[in-house]
């Protein structure tokens, strides 16, 4: 039991991720879907940050360039693992780019459909294709 409680930060990440995925799946408004995606992204970022954290660890910065001093410092100071944190800088940039692109799609969709609700957009597409096939049908019957 205690081992499960000790991993609470991972459970928080999982919870956050499920919240995000639920929003992506269940919301109809496209901006809300993007918010859901962002929450999912943040949960993964939190997962990596939690992974790199060492209890009592500090930022991994060497105070001097002296070899003996470095060795002494390495003995008594605990460092956090910087690599997952650095990786997440890249992932954050990717997330920003994804959000910007998705939002620009939503702007264009809103411009041409007049709505940003997914079901209304799909209904408009369906209506358009029905109208088109009806037009073709009438053309064909005229020709025959």
């Amino acid at each position: 039991m205690s081992s499960y409680l000790g991993l609470w930060h991972y459970h928080a990440c999982i919870l956050l991720m499920m919240v995000g995925l639920f929003a992506v799946i269940s919301r109809q408004h496209l901006v809300k879907k993007i918010l859901g995606l962002t929450i999912t992204q943040v949960s993964v970022i939190m997962f990596f940050v939690a992974m790199g954290k060492v209890r009592g660890g500090t930022a991994p910065i060497l105070e001097t360039m002296n070899h003996d001093a470095v060795a002494r410092q390495a003995q008594d100071v605990v460092f956090s693992n910087p690599i997952p944190h650095v990786l997440m800088l890249t992932a954050i940039v990717v997330g920003v780019a994804t959000n910007a692109l998705a939002l620009s799609f939503v702007v264009r969709i809103k411009e041409s459909y007049g709505t940003a609700e997914e079901d209304e957009v799909l209904a408009a597409d369906h209506a358009a294709s029905v109208a088109e096939s009806a037009k073709e049908h009438s053309l064909e019957s005229e020709a025959t």
Binding site: L21, V24, L30, K33, L37, T40, Q41, V44, F47, F48, M51, I83, P84, A91, V94, T98, L101, A102, F105, V106, R108, I109, S112, Y113, E118, V121, L122, D125
Partner: peptide, 30 residues
């Protein structure tokens, strides 16, 4: 104009796929 909606759903699916891939990388790194 349907291209934009299909690009949006491609983006949604693709981003979720990318995130799953990232979680897997994290676990392997761990």
């Amino acid at each position: 104009r349907r291209a934009m909606m299909s690009a949006f759903s491609y983006l949604t699916m693709g981003t979720i796929g990318g995130l799953f891939f990232l979680i897997g990388i994290g676990m392997l790194y761990q």
